[in-house]
Design a protein around this nucleic acid. Structure first.
Lengths: 124, 124
DNA sequence: CTCTGTATTAAAGTTTACTCAAAGTTTAGT
DNA sequence: ACTAAACTTTGAGTAAACTTTAATACAGAG
């Protein structure tokens, strides 16, 4: 079991954010010490790994919360969960292709301006 | 020369947003008709292309405005502009690598849950 | 002459994802 | 037992990038 600070350093999320995620239903059933302090399990950490993965690839927190909620309802929601993940995966692939095109454009610009810079510095 | 609506359909930005960008200094010196209507040139469209490219790859509008401002100051700012673009390019590449790792994780999850779904549907 | 589109400014509202403050409680170390 | 550090809660505040509203007025087409 890990304290909130340990989870902060493991995940890079702030304690504020961890509590916020819990309040928003992204992470549920985090156990507590006798005094009421949060105690995160390894399973919680795995969930956080998935949450960060989805969040950092652009899924809104609401949709992640929905996924978590479905997971809690057991196998009958497997189809919907697979659907959600597949949709997200497709969108991510499109976005990555878009990013690649933008990267190419930026690379072109960098090269263009670098050449222009060398030219300009000759004239000094 | 293009009207604001033509530029909307060409870029996918709203008229509000185009005026907003102008106010924020992202697009400057847009010319006007005798009646005061905006008339966008091909050069303006190219600028908008770059603006969207930078924006959609995560550059904050403020930084884009800074870049535009530098461009207006001429060749003496070439070095700084190249630096800005190169920095952005490096960040973008890192982000794309991160996305690839996340994509792999999601693909793994999709496969895992798909298998679980087939298993579950057998039991029905 | 009317209708639709566009113009202005300025301010308020929206959404997402946090982030902070206050005030009290629990834990760990000595 | 004492104390400092860590933790709790609730509710308010923040930032970015728009989006909307409002009030008023000019432009160009039919």
């Amino acid at each position: 079991m890990y304290s909130i600070q340990e989870v902060c350093s493991k995940t890079g999320l702030s304690a504020h954010t961890l509590r916020y995620y819990e309040k928003e239903g992204l992470l549920t059933n985090v156990s507590r010490s006798s005094g009421g302090f949060r105690q995160y399990s390894d399973e919680d950490l795995e969930w956080l790994g998935l949450i960060c993965c989805l969040k950092n690839t652009g899924m809104p927190l609401q949709e992640i919360a929905r996924f978590v909620q479905l997971a809690h309802q057991g196998n009958s929601t497997l189809r919907e969960r697979v659907g959600l993940l597949k949709d997200h995966r497709e969108k991510l692939i499109s976005r990555m292709e878009e990013m690649q095109r933008y990267l190419d454009k930026i690379t072109w610009k960098v090269d263009f301006f670098s050449a222009k810079l060398r030219e300009y510095e000759q004239t000094l």
